[in-house]
Write a protein that binds this DNA or RNA. Structure first.
Lengths: 134, 134
DNA sequence: GCCGAACATACCAAGTCAGTAATATGTCAG
DNA sequence: CTGACATATTACTGACTTGGTATGTTCGGC
């Protein structure tokens, strides 16, 4: 049943859905375009898009009979929030993280993401995981 | 079949497994302890631990007939790596990013950075199907 | 050696999900 | 209006996952 909204964790468990997001990260795409890239049938693609839409991870912009899907990354913040308390632990392989930080599209103040002010006494570690059920 | 190793994404899609990791983040625990906290049966707990162990997310330290499970956060780096290119996007919640940066213990000036400047994420996981067709 | 504790595995029933095919809706062109 | 195209929805099947009960297996104590 798709009526129940799923958490980003469950939604992203599917490699196909991660690929869709990766494709949409570059530019918005139509369903046919995505279908072609994914090698799926058109209904299969639409179903994945439906799940992503219900989870708030993509947004649709209709243009005539074409639907342009674009990324909507806000729900990923929940994933990031869950991951946050663990992040300091694998400091040994920080290179991996760094490497992908470098893949970020340039511009914008990526320096803000780069700098690492450990002197920042930020109290609010909400640690809030929703811990809901399926 | 549990023989196939799953990606951290699939493993963490289960709320119970995330809870196990959250519990192990505080301190190592025995199976009975986890069973009690999770409200599951002992075999149920063992099965989840098996999945987590296969994914490399936990490690076992046997002590007589007791098994102490402890967190093994390295595979979470894959999740983090996938997430990284998206992180700059939800600039509205930059506070979250900043907050997690603050959880890092110290500078760790990221000396080793780019030995694999790949365009795509998925460092450890082939982006194709995980197993066969359906 | 025997018994109980702690944990793992095997097996089973139920729910869920991915993929495909068939069909419906809606829009543009003529 | 009609036909072609783009997408959504539904129905169905097969595979996988989850949680439970029952049954090993290993270890320590007696």
């Amino acid at each position: 049943m798709f009526g129940a909204v799923a958490t980003p964790f469950e939604v992203l468990a599917e490699p196909t859905r991660r690929r869709i997001l990766d494709l949409l990260r570059e530019r918005p795409r139509s369903v046919g375009e995505l279908t072609d890239e994914l090698g799926l049938t058109q209904p299969g693609t639409s179903k994945h898009l439906r799940v992503l839409r219900d989870a708030g991870l993509v947004r649709v912009r209709p243009d005539a009979q074409r639907r342009w899907y674009e990324l909507c990354p806000e729900p990923l913040a929940e994933l990031d929030a869950w991951l946050a308390p663990y992040r300091w632990m694998w400091a040994g392989r920080l290179d991996l993280l760094e490497q992908h930080l470098n893949t970020m599209p340039n511009g914008s103040d990526s320096s803000a993401a780069r700098d690492n002010p450990s002197d920042h006494p930020e109290p609010g570690q909400p640690d809030g995981r929703k811990t809901e059920d399926r």
